[in-house]
Amino acid sequence: MSTRSPVLAAGCVLWRPAVSGHGIEIALVHRPKYDDWSHPKGKRKRGETAEACALREVREETGQRCELGARLPTVHYTVDGRPKEVTYWAARALGGTFAPSKEVDALLWLPPAAAGARLTMPRDRELLGLAVAISRH
Rank of each mutant, 00 (worst) to 15 (best):
G95V: 08
L128V: 02
G42A: 01
W37S: 00
G129S: 09
A115Q: 03
G47P: 07
A9Y: 04
I26D: 04
H22S: 13
D36I: 09
R46I: 05
G21T: 10
L8I: 12
A18W: 03
T49N: 08
E85P: 00
H137T: 12
G11W: 02
A115V: 01
A133L: 06
A133D: 02
A9K: 11
D124V: 01
A113G: 00
F98M: 08
G129N: 13
M121C: 00
V19Q: 15
P32K: 08
T3W: 13
W109K: 05
R59E: 11
A10T: 09
H22E: 15
P122D: 03
W109S: 01
V29A: 03
P111Y: 01
H30Y: 06
D36F: 01
L72C: 12
V75M: 14
G63Q: 03
R59S: 11
S101L: 05
A52G: 14
C66N: 04
P6L: 09
K45M: 09
E51N: 00
H76R: 15
L55G: 11
L28Q: 05
R125H: 01
R136Q: 14
Y77F: 15
A9F: 04
P40F: 03
P73K: 05
K41W: 02
R136M: 11
A18G: 10
A113S: 11
K43V: 10
L130V: 00
V19E: 15
A114H: 04
V86Y: 06
M121Y: 14
S5V: 12
H30F: 07
A27W: 00
R71A: 15
H39R: 02
E67S: 13
P6E: 13
M121P: 00
A99H: 15
E126T: 09
K41T: 01
A50E: 11
A18F: 07
R136C: 07
E25Q: 10
R44P: 00
L8A: 13
R92I: 11
L128R: 07
E103G: 08
R44C: 15
E126L: 10
A113W: 00
G116S: 01
S38H: 03
V79F: 14
E61V: 03
H76N: 14
P112C: 01
L130R: 14
R4H: 12
D105H: 06
A27F: 03
V104R: 10
K33G: 00
R31H: 06
G42H: 06
A70T: 14
H137G: 15
L128G: 09
V86H: 01
L108G: 00
R92D: 07
C53T: 15
Y77S: 07
I134A: 13
G95A: 04
S135N: 03
Y77G: 03
E85T: 08
G47A: 06
A133M: 03
D105Q: 06
L72R: 11
A70D: 14
P32I: 01
A106N: 08
A10L: 02
Y77D: 14
T3R: 14
V79E: 14
A54K: 10
P100K: 05
L110R: 07
R16W: 04
G23M: 07
L128H: 05
L14A: 06
L8S: 13
S20R: 05
L119H: 02
A106F: 02
S20F: 02
R136P: 00
A18Q: 05
A54E: 10
A54F: 07
R136A: 12
